[in-house]
Simulated scan of single mutants.
Amino acid sequence: MQSMPEKHLFEYAVIRVVPRVEREEFLNVGVILYCSAQGFLQTMFMLDENRLRAFSGDLDILELDERLRAFERICAGRAKGGTIGQLPIASRFRWLTATRSTIVQTSSVHPGLCTNAGETLARLFAQLVQ
């Protein structure tokens, strides 16, 4: 009898671009996923320039890209992630998903179970962003 793969708790949040915070409109552009048991913290994002320009014509796409790349660097940790990148993995996830009133925000954190965090990140990205 073949055993079922072990399921691990993961947490994720959707990364959103909020051009005008006061209007509370947003466009999903990425996902960040953390799985403690697998030592996994990664983000996937995509900036569709046409959709973003239709949404708000005055967005600085290069600045948005840099902010999202900072998410990647913090997820990767080490010196290139700056001061926050030096924190333990759980602390980095909590910092990245903290509530903020800026053009790049995250949804609330949602839990789930997975066997492979990387595959789960790709599936959530396809469902929620693409």
Score class of each variant (00 low, 15 high):
Ala98Tyr: 04
Ala122Val: 10
Asp65Val: 05
Glu119Gly: 13
Pro19Val: 03
Phe26Arg: 07
Leu64Met: 10
Gln130Gly: 02
Ile32Cys: 09
Ser91Pro: 00
Asp58Ser: 10
Leu27Asp: 04
Ala70His: 13
Ala79Val: 06
Glu49Met: 08
Thr99Met: 14
Phe10Leu: 13
Ile61Cys: 03
Val21Asp: 07
Glu6Ser: 12
Arg23Tyr: 03
Gln127Ile: 15
Met1Pro: 15
Val14Ile: 14
Pro5Ser: 08
Phe93Ile: 10
Tyr12Lys: 00
Asp65Gly: 13
Pro5Ile: 01
Leu59Phe: 03
Glu24Lys: 14
Glu63His: 14
Phe93Pro: 09
Leu87Cys: 03
Gly81Leu: 01
Lys80Ala: 11
Cys114Ser: 14
Val21Thr: 08
Ser3Glu: 11
Met46Ile: 09
Phe10Ser: 01
Gln127Gly: 12
Asn116Gln: 13
Ala117Leu: 01
Arg53Tyr: 15
Gln38Ser: 00
Tyr12Thr: 00
Thr102Ile: 02
Gly39Trp: 02
Leu27Met: 11
Ala79Glu: 13
Val29Lys: 08
Leu124Tyr: 07
Leu41Glu: 03
Leu68Asp: 11
Ala90Lys: 14
Glu63Pro: 00
Asp65Tyr: 15
Ser107His: 09
Ala76Trp: 14
Thr43Asp: 08
Val17Arg: 04
Arg67Gly: 12
Pro5Thr: 03
Ser3Val: 12
Arg94Val: 08
Gly112Phe: 09
Ile89Phe: 11
Leu121Trp: 03
Leu121Ala: 02
Arg67Lys: 15
Glu72Phe: 06
Val14His: 01
Lys7Thr: 07
Leu62Trp: 06
Arg16Trp: 03
Cys35Leu: 00
Val104Leu: 08
Pro111Thr: 12
Leu33Asp: 09
Gln86Asn: 05
Val14Gly: 00
Met1Lys: 12
Arg16Thr: 06
Arg94Ile: 05
Pro88His: 12
Asn116Pro: 06
Asn28Glu: 02
Ile61Phe: 12
Thr115Trp: 12
Gly39Lys: 14
Thr97Asp: 12
Arg123Glu: 12
Thr120Asn: 05
Gly112Val: 11
Ile103Trp: 05
Leu62Met: 04
Pro5Cys: 01
Thr102Tyr: 08
Ala126Lys: 14
Thr120His: 00
Ala13Lys: 01
Ser101Phe: 15
Ser107Ile: 08
Arg123Asn: 07
Leu96His: 00
Asp58Asn: 14
Asp58Met: 08
Ser56Gln: 05
Asn116Leu: 11
Arg16Ala: 01
Ile61Arg: 04
Thr102Met: 01
Phe45Glu: 06
Ser3Tyr: 13
